[in-house]
Structure formats: C-alpha cells, structure tokens
Simulated assay, not measured.
Amino acid sequence: MNYDVPCRRGCTRADSDDLLPARHGAYCARCWGRIEQALIQAPELASHILGHVNPGGAQVGERVSNSGDDAPLPFNETAHGDVNELYALLVYWCSIWADYLEVRPPAVARRAWRRRSGTVIGLPPTTTSEEGSQAVRYMTGWLRDRLDEILTLAPEDVDEFDEGIRDVWRMNARWPRVERPRFAAAPCVFDGCGQRLAVYPPAFPGDVQRIVCEAGHFYAPDEYDDMVATFVALRKAEGRKAQADAERPERVKATLIAKYLRRSA
C-alpha cells in the first residue's frame, strides 16, 4: 500500500486542499468508508424492512380475527419491494465483481430466485426477517472481504457500484430505526483513556460516521482513520517482535548445539 498515491477521485481533507491518500485499493478511506458503512448496515436494514412486510411477524396467508371474521394479514408491498431491490442489487454486484476477480460469487447469489430471463425476482414473500438478514449478510460479507481489491478495478464500475449501494441510505430514511454502533478494535488514545470506541454509522446521505469512546471523547473521521492505521501498524510490529522473541531461544539453542558438535568432532 502506497500512501503517496492520492485517491483516484482526487478527494481532499475537509479542512484543507491536501489530497487524501489511496488507503483502500485506488480510493481514500472516505470513499471506502461510504461503501463499507452501507454494506455493514444492509443486513440489519433488510431485517428491519422485512419486519414491516407482514406486521406482527406472521407468515403470508395466515389469518387473523377481525370483528368475528377471519381476514388475511395486510401485506406491505412497499416494504417488500424495497427489500427485494436491496437483495437484487447485492446479487447483481456480487456477480459482477466475481466475474472481474474470476472467483465464484457467494452461494446465496448463485441460488437467487430468478425469472427465465435471468432477472432476479427477489426474496419469496414468506421470507422471515432472520432469513432475509442472513441472505443479505452472506453477500455483504463477501463484498466487504474483497472491497479493497474491488476498489482497484474499473473506475466506471466502481462509480456505479458506489452510486447503487447508496440506495441503503434512501431505504434508511424510508424505514428509520435506531442505529447501533460497532466497536473498534483500537482503544481511545485521548490522555491514556483506553476505553472502547463506538463507531456510529452515518444517519443520512452526506453524513459521516460518528466516533466516540465510552468516556465521551469524540474523534473526527480523519483522526479516527489515522489512529486506526497507527494502531494496526503497531499491532503488526508487536506481533513480529513477539514472534522474534519466541524464536530467539530456539536459535540460541541451535547455535550452542552446533558449537558443541564442532568441539566434539
């Protein structure tokens, strides 16, 4: 990774004209983070929307009592349409990037419910929130595992992917929910705090993720990115040192044995 290479889009820091480095493939942490955050949120969003398809969590076709008469549960076509759009979007991009990378797409994308023409229909109407979330999670996990590599590929397709995945923000606005933070591996470094860092996803298009530790110390996205990069580098250095320390006694032992054998010869 060469931090001297600027982001392919020419992104600059919020407080200056300094170009942001390409830390993920050919793109900066901001471009990568926008896609990454959408992929992180997608499984929970799918589960949340599916909860609106059939209110109460009942299955399609189940009947409820209504003034003494059995009546079918209401089916929310808008919710079903949105979750199918999200599902089809992920199936499509898993297939596109799998072709580029010359690997097999995830099984859930290969087995997607399609018309004879190959067009993805979506999830069956009886799909539960848990099933839908799991299907989406398999695909987003596959994409996230390969995201840095994807961001080295054809710029026009990366731009289309970035634009398409922004549908997550639109659906977030249509189906609002309480956002849950993820916790960073790096601890808070403010004045030796050491508390866990909670990373809250952007709440709307154009918003940025919010980073705050459990003691209340806030970090700007750029500060957080720099801190994580430093933390990862330190962990790798510590790992190499620990490995070298573990191997040193064996090397000393081997040297002593070799000396002893030479003297005995």
Rank of each mutant, 00 (worst) to 15 (best):
L153Q: 13
C11D: 09
R210F: 10
R116C: 07
K259T: 09
I165L: 11
R110V: 14
T127Y: 05
R263C: 11
V83A: 00
I35K: 03
C188A: 08
C193S: 07
P176D: 05
D17E: 13
N2T: 10
W175S: 09
L151Y: 07
V136N: 06
G206S: 07
Y138F: 13
L153R: 14
Y224N: 04
R196H: 05
D18N: 08
A46V: 08
Y138I: 15
R104W: 15
Y260A: 12
H217I: 03
G216I: 01
A135Q: 07
L90E: 06
A154P: 01
A109V: 02
P74H: 05
W169P: 00
A244N: 12
K236L: 14
R210I: 02
N2Q: 10
G25M: 09
Y87L: 04
C7L: 11
V189E: 01
N84V: 00
V158W: 00
Q41E: 14
E85A: 13
A254P: 02
T255Y: 11
A79H: 03
L45A: 01
G10P: 10
S133N: 03
A198K: 08
V252G: 05
F204N: 08
A173E: 14
T152M: 03
E223M: 11
E85F: 06
A154M: 14
G51Q: 01
E149Q: 09
L147C: 05
R137W: 09
E156L: 13
R13G: 14
C28A: 06
L101H: 14
D162R: 12
A242I: 00
R110F: 07
I211R: 00
D162E: 15
V5Y: 04
G122S: 07
A98C: 06
A233H: 10
K259G: 08
Q41F: 10
A22Y: 06
L73T: 00
P205F: 07
V158F: 00
P205V: 01
F231T: 03
H80A: 08
A135G: 08
E238H: 09
D167H: 15
G81W: 05
N54M: 12
E250A: 15
D245M: 14
V199T: 00
A203G: 15
W142R: 03
S16W: 12
N172C: 14
R144M: 09
P6G: 05
P187T: 06
Y219P: 00
A185K: 12
P72K: 02
L86T: 06
H24F: 15
W113H: 12
V228F: 09
A135W: 07
P105I: 02
E160K: 15
G33H: 04
A254M: 06
C11Y: 05
L86C: 00
S67Q: 13
L73N: 02
F75A: 02
K259W: 13
A198Q: 11
H52F: 13
Q134C: 08
A244T: 14
W93K: 01
E36V: 03
R8W: 03
D207R: 02
L101Q: 15
T126E: 15
G216W: 01
M139G: 02
K253D: 14
S16T: 12
P74W: 04
A229D: 06
L143D: 00
L50K: 02
